[in-house]
């Protein structure tokens, strides 16, 4: 892409970029940064709306100390990590398989159809994914148990048991985000120069060595993108889980965003919830720095 635009003789005033940028930047500062600062301030206060008589005194790092020594917070982070390592390998494997099917020559019409249908899970409202999950994994009339019965397994109470509920939200997440991986890998596969792939196909009949030596290098950038973006998404994951399980049963599906929402808006301990949110923000900033470092280096 032609990038060098009349840099020496710019032909525009020094303040011109400012006028174009100011509206967007000021808006984002106002609605993004200002609330963040507000959350930071709140995180140093005792701030429980259900007890307004206590006032909202500054208590220093007490909220942070409480959060960091709160085993529930750590276990929700740990659970989020477990969720990530459960769904990601499946999404990568299935996504790669789908991408290879879509990349393979032939079957033009069916292939286009499959490619288009991949968009459906991605566009489905996350809350509605949760509603569908409630229907599919219902103990009495859910179709998941019917599938199990067809294969000779007994059905069980998915959403009523800790491991079942965890599996159910994992399956819905895998449904929704596998297409994302598939489309990214497909883009990677189509970057392989045609002649090289043709030559390799003549050279070897093994699909595996084709994948390993020819296609893999083109898949790696997409793989990194998937790993980093999905980690941020899992930290954000709220809608589907909230609708399906509200974090339960017990704390079996209490992912970090769901947990913080409960502390803030069910228990109304906004001081503690703000401290948790700030810690989550710090974690996210580290991840997004990593993301930018790794992924945008070639672009700029």
């Amino acid at each position: 892409m032609a990038e060098k635009t009349a840099t020496p003789n710019r032909g525009y005033g020094r303040w011109t970029p400012f006028w174009f940028l100011a509206p967007a930047v000021l808006t984002l500062l106002l609605i993004g940064i200002y609330p963040t600062i507000f959350a930071l301030v709140t995180s140093f206060r005792r701030y429980n709306i259900t007890r307004p008589r206590d006032g909202f005194p500054f208590i220093g790092f007490e909220n942070y100390l409480n959060v960091l020594s709160d085993s529930t917070f750590w276990s929700s982070l740990l659970l989020t990590a477990r969720f990530y390592v459960t769904v990601l390998p499946v999404q990568i494997a299935l996504g790669l398989a789908i991408a290879l099917l879509l990349h393979k020559p032939g079957m033009g019409l069916l292939k286009s159809l499959a490619r288009v249908t991949l968009v459906v899970p991605l566009a489905t409202t996350y809350a509605v994914v949760g509603l569908i999950g409630r229907l599919i994994f219902n103990r009495d009339f859910g179709v998941a148990n019917q599938f199990l019965n067809w294969f000779g397994f007994p059905g069980f109470d998915w959403l009523g048991s800790p491991s079942g509920a965890f599996a159910a939200i994992a399956i819905m997440d895998i449904w929704q985000w596998t297409p994302f991986c598939a489309l990214i890998f497909l883009a990677g596969l189509s970057m392989v120069p045609g002649e090289i792939e043709e030559a390799a196909r003549l050279e070897t009949s093994s699909r595996l060595s084709l994948l390993r030596y020819v296609q893999l290098p083109y898949l790696l950038p997409g793989l990194t993108a998937v790993m980093i973006l999905r980690s941020a998404d899992v930290l954000k994951l709220f809608d589907m889980v909230f609708v399906m399980t509200r974090g339960g049963p017990g704390s079996a599906t209490d992912l970090v965003s769901v947990y913080i929402q409960r502390v803030g808006f069910r228990i109304f301990d906004l001081g503690t919830a703000s401290a948790q949110a700030i810690l989550l923000l710090i974690l996210t900033i580290i991840i997004s720095r990593l993301y930018i470092r790794v992924l945008y280096r070639e672009v700029n």
């Binding site: 941020a232 709220f238 929402q261």
Partner: peptide, 22 residues
């Protein structure tokens, strides 16, 4: 540029709390 992009990563719960109070 990076600041714009990194907004995509942030969990809504981080902003939902202070925005609710404001």
């Amino acid at each position: 540029w990076f600041w714009f992009i990194s907004n995509r990563m942030i969990s809504p719960i981080v902003l939902a709390l202070p925005v609710y109070m404001l």
